[in-house]
């Protein structure tokens, strides 16, 4: 499955969007802290988090024996750029100049 497929599959489920909302409100939570806000089994939350991690929407940081979950906004930025940022004309012009400067610049 492509990166985009994984991303949209991950976003297609309301429980997973709820998890992202929880992390957006307060990053760096453990599984237990997330479970306290959801009416799902621990196992279901674990599976949703694994899918979000697979789509790179959630990043995990180990602190000692604690696994902390962070919302990773980079893939969403890429979606935004793909369809929306194009309409920001001034920046578009600036980056067009950048593109011209860059072509043939592969090290």
């Amino acid at each position: 499955m492509s990166e985009a497929d994984l991303l949209f599959k991950a976003l297609a489920d309301p429980s997973r969007r709820k998890l992202l909302d929880l992390l957006y409100a307060h990053d760096g939570r453990t599984l237990g802290q997330l479970c306290a806000h959801l009416s799902m089994t621990r196992q279901a939350v674990t599976q949703h988090l694994a899918l979000l991690e697979g789509a790179n929407l959630v990043a995990v940081v180990w602190r000692g024996r604690e696994k902390l979950h962070f919302l990773n906004p980079v893939p969403l930025q890429q979606v935004y750029e793909r369809w929306i940022r194009k309409f920001e004309r001034p920046r578009l012009a600036a980056l067009d100049a950048l593109k011209k400067g860059l072509e043939g610049d592969e090290p």
Binding site: E3, H26, D27, G28, R29, N56, A59, V61, R63, L68, F70, N72, P73, V74, P75
Partner: peptide, 10 residues
């Protein structure tokens, strides 16, 4: 953790 931000890309 409230003051930590993590960004990941491949």
């Amino acid at each position: 953790e409230r003051n930590t931000y993590v960004y990941v890309t491949y």
